[in-house]
Design a protein around this nucleic acid. Sequence first.
DNA 1: GCACTATATTTGTCTAGTCAAAATAAGTCT
DNA 2: AGACTTATTTTGACTAGACAAATATAGTGC
Lengths: 242, 242
Amino acid sequence: MPTLTKTDGVALYVQVRETLREQIKSGLFAPGQKLPSEDELSSQFGVSRMTVRQGISDLTDEGVLYRRRGIGTFVTQFHVERDHNKLTGFSDTAKAEGFEGKVQLLSREVVPAKLMVAKALALHETEPVIRIQTLRWANDVPVTVYDEYVPYKLCHELLQEDLRSRAAWEILETYGYTIKRAVQKIEARLADTDLATLLNLEENAPILYKHRIILAEDGAPVELILCYNRGDGYSVKMTLVR
Amino acid sequence: MPTLTKTDGVALYVQVRETLREQIKSGLFAPGQKLPSEDELSSQFGVSRMTVRQGISDLTDEGVLYRRRGIGTFVTQFHVERDHNKLTGFSDTAKAEGFEGKVQLLSREVVPAKLMVAKALALHETEPVIRIQTLRWANDVPVTVYDEYVPYKLCHELLQEDLRSRAAWEILETYGYTIKRAVQKIEARLADTDLATLLNLEENAPILYKHRIILAEDGAPVELILCYNRGDGYSVKMTLVR
DNA sequence: GCACTATATTTGTCTAGTCAAAATAAGTCT
DNA sequence: AGACTTATTTTGACTAGACAAATATAGTGC
């Protein structure tokens, strides 16, 4: 059994969770297989049962394990990719999916908020917002047009920052804002002339449109992103829970 | 303070959670406001602090509350609708969204699994699957074409069941299968002639295409749904977590 | 063989504490 | 006034137990 350390600052339940995840990934616990009971694990790891439970709970939430009262804890059969519904940056996604990502800045300006933007960002109309338009490339193919809006009062430094590797909300994180979640709405649309030109498509080609609001820890909206993805070859993945 | 009952079979932490949710909804705790400390709540509710914490943790996972160590627990500012990423049936959705839903059965037959279907359902090619095609209406407008596949060996009774109110996976639940999650892929496409006719659209109108695999508790796929939504007026909502 | 019963196993819930870490507020010294 | 220290509050992590509920298993009686 692997030994846990009590002094390196990593919580014991996190060490338990990651140890189990590693053992599952390595095949020590195969899909469908029953794990040792919580009592057994707690004595093997040398921690209390509640600590083991916290680690296991994280993995059941992720869908790696499932529990059945009176029977035991099991590894789920088919490990579909599980990290959907995660808010990740473009460069991280590029790295994970294995393509070369490039961001081309189209424009950056301070403009008064349109009604739609003001509504999404809980501002008054005509309040100044920073608007950033970018074109994103994957392996030298233009895939997405980004139209981002951030309240000017939130972070005027955004006008100087380098935008080629990070989205605006990732920069906001470095200024002390804690980004916790985002809500987005997905629709199917058709490319207008401008979009078609930028994305190198024919007019009326299918476009996956995303309306995304980035929320800080306290639930306050910090950014609005309107996102136009070319329809061919692009898809959004998500998991639904009963 | 509301009294919790120890005998009605509802876990105390669930009662704490729902009491807090009700108090927040009623405005007793306003957005941005600080909740009483966990110690205080535990003495007010008459339960241990760990029990209070479990209730609060559920609400932070939902995004209703957020905690800051050393400071306190707070109500999030803007209550965006939170029940995204939930797997719900068509009639439940209709009820929640407030439209009249109707399901029209187009065809139901047993066919050998195509490669794509076999792959999604972890079957061998040509294994028999039940294919169900339906057209779904909202307020007498055709909005979605459903193309569902269920392994024949899983539940042949599906050939007799009434499909007008429930999706196949909802019927599987009544046969003892525990549905826990689904993974789906969303794309933007164009309507072909058949789809355009069914959905009363012009050809090449935008279509939101969903490829959804329903998974049982143990992670085994029990159903594949190919879903074609008309693009105008239809959108998928989801939340992303950092 | 079949229905029922007792027993052991395992997860779910809960308690009553402890200590640590982070943030705030008050007080103290220079 | 400003920097530093100290005490207080609050959440985070953890322990070592307890009992309940669900399931499986073995045994018993007919």
